[in-house]
Design a protein around this nucleic acid. Structure first.
Length: 196
DNA sequence: AGCAAGATTAGC
DNA sequence: CTAATCTTGCTA
């Protein structure tokens, strides 16, 4: 079903379904310039039974944004070097989120190249959670930001229901984690060259 | 107060 | 394969 407010409809679903459903949505970064990418890879991070989640041991200063109402951004710094963007899910007070792991660059490629550096191929512009944050100029200033509004906004795919991903979605275990490595919480657009 | 680990990436 | 780089949260 299509709804008047696709984002609201999607975010009402369980986190795992949001992670799957976000494949095909677009992320728009409107700074001075405009950058847009299509989400092709995500991972779900849950609040219970998920040792890999930042919320596994409850609320802390870092993960506070995970406990906001669904539709906010949770942005954190990893390895002291790279930022990672999450879409907060689940009701207010429940710490769950979806990590955005890959984007297909659609608009603002020149700006992305400028931010990523001269030796980066187009395929590597937004392939990886740290890379896409650098490409779109995202950092912790956006932690807690409402993803319904500029300068960082989720845009629904056209002509399909929010719970029906565009095309086939591959499901597998999450990568880059050391706990709960076997849960099938990673989602990728099948056949996309923009995933890792 | 000190310290180890981390949802990664680039370069050798 | 390893270094980079620093914040966080746990332990003492």
């Amino acid at each position: 079903m299509r709804s008047r407010d696709p984002l609201r409809t999607l975010l009402a679903l369980p986190t795992v379904d949001v992670a799957r459903g976000l494949i095909g949505w677009r992320l728009e970064r409107s700074d001075e310039l405009r950058c847009v990418g299509r989400i092709v890879e995500t991972e779900a991070y849950l609040s219970e039974g998920d040792g890999a989640s930042h919320s596994a041991r409850g609320r802390t200063a870092r993960n506070a944004a995970m406990y906001l109402a669904a539709g906010h951004a949770y942005v954190y710094l990893i390895y002291g070097l790279h930022h990672c963007l999450n879409v907060v899910t689940a009701p207010d007070g429940v710490g769950e989120a979806v990590l955005i792991r890959g984007l297909e660059p659609l608009e603002g490629l020149d700006e992305m190249r400028a931010r990523r550096g001269p030796h980066v191929t187009d395929r590597d512009l937004c392939r990886g959670p740290g890379r896409l944050c650098q490409a779109l100029g995202m950092d912790r200033a956006l932690d807690g930001h409402d993803l319904r509004r500029a300068p960082l906004r989720l845009i629904p795919p056209e002509c399909r229901a929010v719970d029906q991903p565009a095309g086939e979605v591959l499901i597998g275990p999450r990568v880059g984690i050391s706990k709960a490595t076997d849960l099938p919480l990673r989602f990728r657009a099948a056949g996309s060259q923009w995933t890792s």
